[in-house]
C-alpha cells in the first residue's frame, strides 16, 4: 500500500512537472511545423513568467497575470517573427538573442519595480495564484476506497486549471494540425513553402500566425511557472525547460501525441530524480541525481544520432523563405 501511495504521488508530480514542458513543446510544434526554429521557447516562457507574476502581484488577480504573461510572450514572438520571417535573419541567433535578453530583462525590471533583488513579491493573496482544484468527493473517496480513491483524489483531482488545459490542448493541437485547412497549410509551409506560395497563400502570414500561437502557449506555460507551480518570479526560473521542451518535441518527432509521451517521460525522470535523491536502492545503491536529470538530453542525442528510431524535422524548418521573381 505504501509503495502504491508512493507511485501515485510520483505520477501526480510527473503531471505537474510535465505541464509547462508540454505547453512549451506544443508551442514549438506549431512554430517548427511552420518552418520557424523554436529556440526562443525559453525566453518567451521566462518573459511570461515574469510578466504574470508582476501583473498578479500588482493587480491581485491571477487571470490578469495570465493575460499579461500571454501578452509579453506574444510580443516576443512577434519580435522573433519579425527577425525570422520579415528580415529573414538567422533563426537560431534570433532565438538565442531573445533568450539571453529576457534572462537579463526579467530580474532587471523586477529589481527596479519591486526592489527585492530581482524577484517579484510573494503571491499570497487568495486570487493571485492558480491553485489546485479538488474534485467533488475526492477526500472522501481516498478515505473510503483507498485503491481507486487515491488514484481519483491525487492523480485526477487536485491539480490547477492549467494542468487540465494543457492536457486538453494535445487533442486540440492534433485536430488543428491534421484536420483543419489551417493546419494543412501550416504543415505545408514548413515542408514546401514554394508550393504554398504557388497556391496563392501568403507564406509570411502563415508563419506569423504559427509563431504567435507559440507565443500564446509559452505565455500560459510561463504563467504556470510563476503563478501556479510557485508563488512569484525568481531569476532564471525556467532553468532550461524551454530547451528541454525542444528536446521533447524532437523526441516526439514533431507530432502531438508522441510529444506528449516524451514530455511525460522527461517529467517522470525529473520527478523520479527528486524522489530518489540520496535514497539507497537495493542492488544498485545510490543513483546520482545528476545522471537521472541528464537522461532526457542523452536520450535526445541518441535519437538524433539515429540510434533510437529516426527524427526527420520539417523540411523547410530554419530556412527563410525568399519569393522567387
Amino acid at each position: 500500500m505504501e509503495t502504491y501511495t508512493l507511485i501515485v504521488l510520483l505520477l501526480a508530480a510527473t503531471l505537474r512537472v510535465a505541464t509547462p514542458l508540454l505547453l512549451a513543446a506544443l508551442a514549438g510544434l506549431f512554430s517548427e511545423r511552420a518552418g520557424v526554429i523554436a529556440l526562443g521557447l525559453e525566453g518567451m516562457m521566462l518573459g511570461a513568467a515574469f510578466a504574470a507574476a508582476a501583473a498578479s502581484a500588482v493587480s491581485g488577480s491571477a487571470w490578469v497575470g495570465l493575460g499579461a504573461g500571454i501578452a509579453v510572450a506574444v510580443a516576443l514572438a512577434l519580435l522573433l517573427g519579425f527577425a525570422c520571417v520579415t528580415q529573414r535573419g538567422n533563426q537560431v541567433v534570433a532565438g538565442m538573442a531573445v533568450n539571453i535578453m529576457v534572462a537579463g530583462l526579467g530580474p532587471a525590471l523586477a529589481l527596479a519595480w519591486f526592489d527585492l533583488g530581482g524577484q517579484t513579491p510573494q503571491l499570497e493573496g487568495a486570487g493571485q495564484r492558480f491553485l489546485g482544484l479538488a474534485w467533488p468527493g475526492a477526500a472522501a473517496a481516498a478515505r473510503t476506497a483507498p485503491f481507486p480513491g487515491l488514484l481519483y483524489s491525487q492523480l485526477l483531482s487536485g491539480h490547477n486549471l492549467i494542468v487540465y488545459l494543457a492536457a486538453a490542448l494535445v487533442p486540440v493541437s492534433a485536430w488543428i494540425l491534421y484536420r483543419t485547412r489551417f493546419g494543412l497549410r501550416l504543415r505545408a509551409v514548413g515542408e514546401n513553402p514554394q508550393a504554398v506560395d504557388t497556391a496563392g497563400i501568403g507564406v509570411a502570414g502563415l508563419r506569423y500566425q504559427a509563431v504567435m500561437i507559440s507565443g500564446v502557449l509559452c505565455g500560459v506555460a510561463g504563467a504556470y511557472l510563476s503563478t501556479a507551480a510557485s508563488a512569484g518570479f525568481v531569476r532564471d526560473m525556467t532553468a532550461g525547460k524551454g530547451y528541454l521542451a525542444l528536446a521533447a518535441l524532437i523526441f516526439g518527432k514533431w507530432r502531438p501525441y508522441p510529444t506528449l509521451g516524451a514530455c511525460l517521460l522527461f517529467a517522470f525522470t525529473d520527478a523520479l530524480a527528486t524522489r530518489l535523491q540520496g535514497v539507497d536502492l537495493p542492488l544498485v545503491g545510490v543513483i546520482p541525481v545528476q545522471f537521472i536529470l541528464a537522461l532526457p538530453y542523452v536520450l535526445t542525442v541518441l535519437l538524433l544520432a539515429g540510434f533510437v528510431g529516426t527524427a526527420v524535422p520539417p523540411r523547410a524548418s530554419g530556412v527563410p523563405y525568399e519569393k522567387e521573381r
Binding site: Q87, A94, I100, M101, D115
Partner: peptide, 22 residues
C-alpha cells in the same frame, strides 16, 4: 535600481542586432 542583469540585456540586444536583425 540597476543591477548586473542590465549587462545581460545589452548582450542579448547586441546578438539580436548583429546577428538576427543585421
Amino acid at each position: 535600481h540597476v543591477n548586473r542583469d542590465m549587462v545581460v540585456v545589452i548582450q542579448g540586444l547586441v546578438i539580436l542586432f548583429c546577428g538576427a536583425l543585421e
